[in-house]
Amino acid sequence: MKFTQSAVLAFAATAVAAPSSTTREKPRAAAAACSSAVSLDASTNIWKKYTLHANNFYKAEIEEAVKTMDADLAAQAAKVANVGSFLWIDTIDNIAKVEPAIADVPCNDILGLVIYDLPGRDCAAKASNGELKVGEVSKYKSQYIDPIVKILKAHPNTAFALIIEPDSLPNLVTNSDLQTCKDSAAGYRDGVAYALKNLNLPNVIMYIDAGHGGWLGWDANLKPGAQELAKAYTAAGKPKQVRGIATNVAGWNSWDQSPGEFSKASDAKYNKCQNEKIYVTEFGAALKTAGMPNHAIVDTGRNGVTGLREEWGNWCNVKGAGFGVRPTSTTGTELADAFVWVKPGGESDGTSDSSATRYDSFCGKSDAYQPSPEAGTWNQAYFEDLLRNAKPQF
């Protein structure tokens, strides 16, 4: 690991890419929805009752991908289509995906949505910059959050799990020296608090993004990170439907590898969170002290293979990656509610074209898959690699 601790802290911003806005819409036939209003008890692990829904948009992408595969790989890919995953609502236009996604959710399933459109989004990474400019928090509230609230209220018989704004608050902890993050800070805090307050509905469970163990897991970041999240939670009025945090979103960290992937690095002594299991425990303790709910869901969508990255902060289209453990509430740790699939495997983290406007140098590193298209765009070859390297195999 070549980064010093300070370098890791500065660059550990994980750019996360949402589904392409051109994703084909293929809603399934209406499922057996609940006959009465859903009421989720955020003091309990709702994943023991509900199954993460396999949304129809990711299914459509995989059905298209299967067409060019050989028979054996196609058969495996077809199984991926039935794995529950989160749907990314990364633009105002993509709010239109929510209603069709609800159409086939049965009563024992929960629809996962990623709320991801803050002004000045991803202030420390170019690959997944958003549509709203710094200062447009009023537009974020009225044209993004409010319409989503209206839809969720209109479907009280459907259960929803929300991940609130990946990368936002963690960036304010570790990249506060960047002017772009300084400019975005007020909007992030205001926007996240507004989202938490207004999405606090009986049929909703919420998790605030908390980066991962290689980001806020550093000894120096645990307390400030927990305090940053807790401030947003408190500013929102401590909404009762907030259950805790989401970790490793679009990430690569192992759940319980021991010793950890970077445990032999020269600066490892400054980070005890060498896997996500330790991170959930350590950060959970810090959250409790800060006065915030501290249960977690962990993204295992692409962490089936470890030892691939040259440095812990490398986040873009890691070569050799494989699909990880399927969504389940069996985690072996009380603070970890569930393993879930958040990042749609096969959609690019960012382009490797150095001449592109949204090119980020992390996507040109030697451990990043090349060529790769723009963030959110389907990469067939990368999807097939994730499938071949899946652990466990499909």
Rank of each mutant, 00 (worst) to 15 (best):
Q5A: 14
Q5G: 02
F11K: 14
A13K: 13
A15D: 12
V16Y: 08
V16T: 10
E25C: 14
K26T: 04
A29H: 13
A30F: 07
A31T: 09
A32E: 11
S36Y: 03
V38T: 11
V38H: 07
L40G: 09
D41E: 07
S43I: 12
T44P: 08
T44N: 10
K49W: 03
H53E: 15
H53L: 10
A54C: 13
Y58E: 09
Y58M: 15
Y58N: 13
E63P: 08
V66W: 04
V66H: 02
M69F: 05
D70L: 07
A71F: 04
A71C: 09
D72W: 12
A74H: 04
A74L: 12
A75C: 08
K79G: 01
V80H: 06
N82C: 08
N82M: 10
S85Y: 02
F86C: 12
W88L: 10
I89M: 02
D90K: 08
V98S: 07
P100A: 11
A103H: 08
P106L: 15
N108E: 15
L111Q: 04
L111V: 05
G112I: 14
G120K: 10
A127W: 05
E131H: 12
L132F: 01
L132R: 00
S138L: 11
K141Q: 13
Q143E: 15
K150P: 06
L152P: 09
A154M: 10
A161C: 14
A161Q: 13
E165W: 12
S168D: 06
P170D: 08
S176R: 15
S176A: 13
L178A: 12
Q179L: 14
T180R: 15
K182N: 06
K182V: 10
A193S: 07
V204D: 07
M206Q: 12
G211P: 00
H212I: 05
G214R: 04
L216Y: 05
D219T: 15
N221C: 13
K223D: 11
P224S: 06
G225P: 05
E228W: 03
E228C: 09
E228V: 06
L229A: 06
A230Y: 01
Y233T: 02
T234M: 14
A235K: 10
K240Y: 03
K240D: 04
V242H: 01
R243E: 06
G244E: 00
N248P: 00
V249I: 07
G251W: 02
W252R: 11
D256A: 02
S258T: 00
E261S: 01
S263Q: 02
S263I: 03
S266V: 14
Y270C: 10
C273P: 03
N275C: 00
E276C: 00
Y279C: 00
A285D: 14
A286I: 11
G291H: 04
G291C: 11
G291V: 06
H295C: 02
V298W: 00
T300V: 10
T300K: 11
G301D: 02
R302T: 04
T306S: 08
G307A: 07
E311W: 02
G313P: 02
W315T: 09
C316A: 10
V318W: 03
G320E: 05
T328P: 01
T328Q: 02
S329K: 01
T331V: 09
T331F: 03
G332V: 00
A338P: 04
G346I: 13
D349I: 14
A356E: 10
P371F: 04
P371Q: 01
E374W: 01
E374K: 13
Q380A: 09
A381E: 11
F383W: 05
L386C: 01
R388C: 05
N389T: 07
F394Y: 07
